[in-house]
Design a binder for these strands. Structure first.
Lengths: 136, 136, 136, 136
DNA sequence: GTGGTCTAGACCACG
DNA sequence: GTGGTCTAGACCACT
């Protein structure tokens, strides 16, 4: 049954990501870990905006992006709900985006001269601790 | 003897990183892999700008950042040269920056529903293939 | 609560430091003395530029450096704020940079034949009068 | 009697000062410590340039500055010699230049969050170890 | 020739 | 409105 999910997000002022981006990332993460499940109802734009102390337009933009990406779907008059998992990206596009992400990460490891093996360990640990679902 | 390094950089429009940032990352990478060695001379600001088809100020900005980070040093009137490697950051800062990088990478893996184990493999492969030197 | 800090900076033409450098030094000083506090909002790039009669890019460059050094943090669309103090440099680098500063100062004392003891007094007086905080 | 002073200067590539500035500083220091004495003869422009591996124009410029400042004096056809100590700057100008130097030093101490007392100690130690003469 | 700095004006994403 | 980035062109000091 559709339920309003109890929902905890925080926006960090020290984060270089935009507020909308932080919201998007947080919701994607919660869906991927199963903390939010298919058909769960999301808080209203105004409600979440008030809870986070941000501009409603910002929340609205984040919801719009998640909807466009297929993570959420709108049911007219009822609100936004977690959508069924479906892969939007084809193989090439997914590989290209991962490749960019890998390059970015490697660049930072190089920039701070972090030991490569330890860096890989950190990534592996972070991903394992999430217990992701729905991965292709 | 100082040598002018043969030098191949390309700037990709599909990359979300700024042009200056791409230049910075590319040069740091070449220094870290040993492709550029201490006392090697870098291409002139104007020369590299022309080669890449970008504004000299953009290259200058990238060079300035690398100099501030201790990767390069300027010799007045002669040009820029690869400096001796030295770590500037303390342990806490290094861990903090790696942590941010890990979070960013994980966010992207989640966003594109990439299989976590495969993602870790890609990172490990990318780092190993570099044969980095001078990592603490 | 974030507050817009009342803010007085002047740029001196007789100073050999670049305008951007003067701005950087002045803001670091105000943060270190507690005149600017964590979460205080800084004047906008355009506003400070107009106030000082310099190009906005010059102010932007100064702000960018302070952000890179961890003194400020940007909140997208809102402006720049004083960040929590954090040391980035390790011991060796800090000693190295102080040593360079000492050498530069000594060179100037020698150049103008200033009495050494009096010069030390001036430095001591200047540092004491600041009542610096957060020094390691 | 005028003698050619045995003379050891090195130019450091990692130094942010220009080469000419390094030469000027080094010679002023040697005169101030008594390592070079009044009427000592300096190496020729070409000789010093060759010894340092730099452009003769650079040495020439350094010598010219030192002569303008009154540290050296030219004897036609004989070469350059250390001049009698005389103060060129009036009190106000000397105080102004020291003040700028103090500000620069303080700025660096603030920038790297170096403990103020320890910084003063370093300056005092550096100046004492020189055993300066000829100070007004 | 080299890099460093400043000005001027433009476009973008964000809130 | 905010900062971030890039372009264009200029002047300076240094070698």
């Amino acid at each position: 049954m559709p339920q309003v999910a109890p929902f905890i997000i925080t926006v960090a002022t020290g984060d270089s990501r935009s507020i909308a981006r932080q919201i998007v990332d947080a919701i994607r993460l919660r869906i991927s870990t199963g903390e939010l499940r298919v058909d769960d109802k999301l808080p209203s734009v105004r409600g979440l905006a008030q809870q986070l102390g941000v501009n409603p337009n910002t929340v609205s933009k984040a919801y719009a992006q998640l909807t466009a990406e297929g993570w959420l779907c709108a049911r007219a008059g009822l609100g936004l709900f977690v959508a069924e998992a479906r892969d939007q990206l084809n193989g090439h596009e997914r590989e290209r985006r991962l490749s960019l992400a890998v390059d970015r990460f490697v660049s930072e490891v190089v920039a701070i001269r972090y030991p490569p093996e330890a860096a890989v360990e950190k990534v592996a640990g972070a991903l394992e601790s999430l217990n992701l679902r729905n991965s292709a």
